[in-house]
């Protein structure tokens, strides 16, 4: 079975020959792993089952002095957070789209590398990524506190903004369908450590209708829908399944009961993630990491699970802890390729 077929088996709610995996690392953690695996390229060494296509956070123009600008015009300071950065200033100063023009969703930079990457990793399951896929795009343009108050003060503006963002994404989804991809992986954090940032009422009023349109565009083309959404959002899973969600990430053990959720939803929803990045990976021993990884692999043996740390691994995680989970997932019985 190819990696692509193993993921398809899992998404179909069937029992896979082993638990597939797809693990992400921040630049700092990835650089240390790369050093360990050299001369082997990290992407080869990891043997991830998901081939990530497009760009999760978009493309940027370098403005110098650790500042970059995304295609939406938002400036990000990367002097501290080197992977994403922090928004500088506010593109939408007022609650209006009157003077704002959305960028071209069909910018070829999002699609140019897809054929080459697919040709190079033919056996992997292909996901086209759309990061900052709704709420996050809105707050990066408007400022998070402004946007959260706009839910009260300017509901028509919020609807219009989210609708435009969804339209932009749908145009990208439709273009991505011209390539041999398997799924679209959206990314949009809605949660806090406890509960939703905007609460369930506003989520249903503003976010849900646009998700429904975006997910429908993917399903109409016969592809799978993945979402990454950090925090305590499991109260939304039924709603999300109802509009066609196939796979949920990051499945954080600190904010949700991952065992009972997997039992409850197995066969209806696949979970990607699960390994503690807030506690075990940075603060546990390599033995702690091995124990938790084994537990997750046992839990996922009956399907509906793709192993991963519950976030891109941060720079504070010891190398031996990264190697501990990689060795276990790559040496599962049933995985004949490794």
């Amino acid at each position: 079975m190819t990696k692509r077929e193993v993921i398809q088996t899992v998404l179909a709610g069937k029992v896979p020959p082993y638990v597939p995996w797809s693990c992400g690392f921040t630049k700092e953690a990835g650089a240390r792993l790369q050093e360990h695996f050299k001369p082997l390229e990290l992407e080869e060494a990891l043997q991830n089952h998901l081939l990530k296509l497009g760009s999760d956070i978009g493309f940027f123009t370098d403005l110098g002095e650790n500042h970059v600008q995304d295609v939406f015009g938002v400036v990000w300071d990367r002097s501290i957070d080197k992977d994403i950065g922090n928004v500088v200033g506010c593109v939408l100063q007022d609650a209006t789209l009157l003077h704002y023009h959305f960028p071209d969703p069909l910018d070829m930079r999002f699609f140019a590398e897809i054929p080459v990457r697919i040709a190079h990793y033919t056996d992997r399951f292909r996901v086209f990524q759309i990061g900052f896929s709704l709420y996050e795009r809105a707050w990066s343009l408007r400022g998070i506190q402004n946007l959260l108050m706009d839910f009260y003060d300017h509901p028509a503006f919020v609807h219009a903004l989210l609708e435009e963002i969804a339209d932009y994404n749908i145009a990208q989804v439709q273009e991505a369908m011209n390539y041999d991809i398997d799924a679209v992986y959206f990314g949009d954090d809605w949660g806090q450590q406890r509960g939703l940032q905007m609460g369930p009422k506003f989520w249903r009023q503003f976010i849900y209708p646009e998700l429904k349109r975006m997910y429908s565009a993917v399903h109409t083309a016969g592809k799978y829908v993945f979402i990454h959404s950090c925090g305590d959002v499991d109260e939304l899973l039924e709603d999300l399944i109802g509009i066609g969600l196939d796979c949920f990430n990051p499945f954080q053990p600190e904010v949700m009961n991952i065992e009972s959720l997997l039992e409850h939803f197995r066969g209806r929803l696949t979970f990607h993630g699960g390994l503690s990045t807030q506690q075990t990976l940075p603060f546990g021993t390599d033995e702690d990491v091995r124990m938790e990884t084994k537990r997750l692999l046992d839990m996922g043996a009956r399907g509906s699970y793709i192993f991963a740390p519950a976030h891109d691994v941060e720079g504070d995680v010891p190398l031996e802890n990264m190697l501990a989970f990689l060795e276990l997932v790559q040496n599962q019985p049933g995985d004949r390729e490794n």
Partner: peptide, 14 residues
């Protein structure tokens, strides 16, 4: 009690 979330807290604080 999960009856208020960040938007409510922000407008009340304002």
């Amino acid at each position: 009690n999960n009856e208020f979330f960040i938007p409510e807290m922000l407008v009340s604080a304002r």
